[in-house]
Design a protein around this nucleic acid. Sequence first.
DNA 1: CAATACATACATACTGGTCGGTATGTACAC
DNA 2: GTGTACATACCGACCAGTATGTATGTATTG
Lengths: 208, 208
Amino acid sequence: MKVKRNPDHTRDALLAAAFDEIHAQGFRAASIDKILARTGVTKGALYHHFPNKAALGQAVVNEVLFERMQENWQRLNDADSDPVSLLLAMIDDAIAHADRDTVALGCPLNNLVQEMAGLDEDFRECLNKVQSAWRTALAAALTRAQQNGTGRPGLDCNQAAAFIVGAYEGCVGVGKCGVGTEVFTTCLRGMADYLHTLRPATALQANC
Amino acid sequence: MKVKRNPDHTRDALLAAAFDEIHAQGFRAASIDKILARTGVTKGALYHHFPNKAALGQAVVNEVLFERMQENWQRLNDADSDPVSLLLAMIDDAIAHADRDTVALGCPLNNLVQEMAGLDEDFRECLNKVQSAWRTALAAALTRAQQNGTGRPGLDCNQAAAFIVGAYEGCVGVGKCGVGTEVFTTCLRGMADYLHTLRPATALQANC
DNA sequence: CAATACATACATACTGGTCGGTATGTACAC
DNA sequence: GTGTACATACCGACCAGTATGTATGTATTG
């Protein structure tokens, strides 16, 4: 029942398998041969669709990773509830659904940033597009929070957005060191404490 | 004037060169041959001192990385000034001394954690020793702050310590994505904002 | 004190395996 | 029939690791 030729499907299959392999092994340790074995695609086909390994990796970032992460962020801006509560809910969700394997794998974006951003300028650029889109979406959400009264007035939203991205990636990162999910969840709970401080100071200061 | 034999010096030279190579390339991409070329040590000598590459890498973590990082933490506990101010000063210092190359290299501990913690149990274990020692030192400092009145009373110190470690590593991590030091420093300034919330609420709530 | 014995500390040359990449050929679709 | 979409076989480079040999320092013994 296998279709003889389907270039789009072939390309997508390669991107998906490359994403998984790179997520698990990192880009440089990702094996072209393993990606081929996983998909059943041959080397000739791969090098027909991508000029070299770097182009494959960057296509994974631009086409798979970027879109996958955008699905998460846009939740921040299409709802009309307050963004800080949304962020807290996402933290709770991450804590609730954390399991050993996903913690060990880490964030695919952060993994690549740590490995490649300092080594390859092209990689750094397309990774930066993903990460800065994240920061921008977060900053917009925080600005919206200020406007609808659910965000602390004095807050520097761009600065806070940068920190939130960094802190979250950091929580996922240090979580890898723990035996199970403990370090990860503890770290996230500390982050939840921080997120509460992004709210207007009314509730906290009621007892003074 | 070269001393004919000096096993301790040979071993130290290998560890130092391995640290640099691993810091720059990661563990798996670190080349034994390049470490040898850098030191002038031969392969026979290296494999006399270390049974294999993994043992060399773990020795780097246990002997070089651990001690190097401990020098930074013990500042938190030997002074009698308040720890939160010390942390803020360290952030300021990091911002002031940040340069393009160090940001691109990233934190040697975090680099290794991201690369190896999920892949190799032995590595994870010795990296965890370094990182948990950091968390412990931080938690102790925060507890001390609570005791001498410079720390917020209700704070869960272990949780906050975990978050601080994660957030800082995250700031260094996402900083790699930026063109220069901008993302890194913005992120750290956001972190400084967080650190202020660890203080007792007196100063902030004075205007209510 | 000197000769011997032995372990430590290297040095050199090589191996098998994996890697990304390519050269060349073929079958399908329009 | 002509370009696209594959398939196969192969290449040189590099890799960690090893087999083997040698020089050096040190303890032992006569």
